[in-house]
Design a binder for these strands. Structure first.
Lengths: 168, 168
DNA sequence: TGTGAAATATAACGCTA
DNA sequence: TAGCGTTATATTTCACA
């Protein structure tokens, strides 16, 4: 009798990712639109092998999904800011509830829960300076648990090098 | 998911996006792996229409690309931090050169150039606390123009609601 | 919007080192 | 065990009506 699931590359937390895996991840994290054929060709793999490895990376959870990147300016939100949020009370319920609310607020790109004097950093994109002011006053400081905010204009955001081994 | 796209800079900011466009963008920004068939079905569009509109959004530059999302912990970098970097000199050359260097540093996910007392916020992912210390000492404070850094541990990051109109 | 031809992805198989 | 090439099948894409 066969196992219900064929033995698969054991990829746990102690996953061993070889050089090819890193190349695949780097390529797909820069552009996930590439066809399997092109990807295989670029890395010198057989198409079947390439498809197999990419699928294994997905199933292992290393690749959690793919997302379309949007041009925020073209969407009418050319202004970005980081808003630091400091709480007055730090009960678990307060923190979690506020976190949920902030992350769900329109305009929030990412919400960081951090250690230190501040509790949250919000990366937001808005229409203009007025909208930024309104965002803070309407959606952030209105929460009673929020003691203080500090808004910093973002001139530019760049994607970093990431955690993958450099290409070789 | 598969489609080599000729990089075409197009249509101006005067592009008008209707409700369907917003729904498409929302869906694709959450999961770009959906097939055109499934996407069309979900929104009640003909497949050809759906494909056409998505393509138009790409050509208009609203969708700038798609990227695979990676599980940083499985890649061996379970620790994230925000590092605030303050410069001692703000000549254009200094700023740009440092920006380039920081964004290219392994471990940097995003580099924000911001207004205020600090000049850059670096969102980084590293192996452990030691690696975080080493990151700062080896890659940040070694730049002569860096006057001060402040490192804040990130407990958690969440994707926000984004700038798209809420679903209706 | 619908259709059909071409391209592509997927899964299964056997073979090799 | 991992990689490769092949096959057959299912699906998608894209240009055109």
């Amino acid at each position: 009798m066969r196992n219900p699931q064929p033995p698969r590359r054991a990829v746990g937390p102690a996953t061993t990712l070889d050089h090819v895996d890193h190349q695949l991840l780097r390529a797909l994290s820069e552009n996930a639109d590439v066809t399997n054929k092109a990807l295989a060709g670029r890395l010198g793999l057989a198409e079947s092998t390439c498809a197999y490895r990419v699928r294994a990376l997905r199933e292992a959870g290393v690749i959690t999904g793919t997302r379309a990147q949007l041009d925020l300016a073209l969407l009418g939100c050319p202004l970005q800011a980081i808003i630091m949020v400091r709480l007055g009370s730090h009960t678990m319920a307060n923190v979690n509830q506020l976190y949920d609310a902030l992350a769900a607020t329109p305009g929030v790109l990412q919400a960081f829960h951090v250690a230190g004097a501040d509790d949250f950093y919000l990366h937001v994109a808005v229409e203009n300076a007025e909208a930024l002011r309104d965002f803070v006053l309407q959606y952030v400081t209105t929460h009673r648990v929020v003691r203080q905010t500090e808004t910093h204009l973002v001139f530019e955001v760049r994607n970093g090098a990431g955690v993958l081994r450099s290409r070789t």
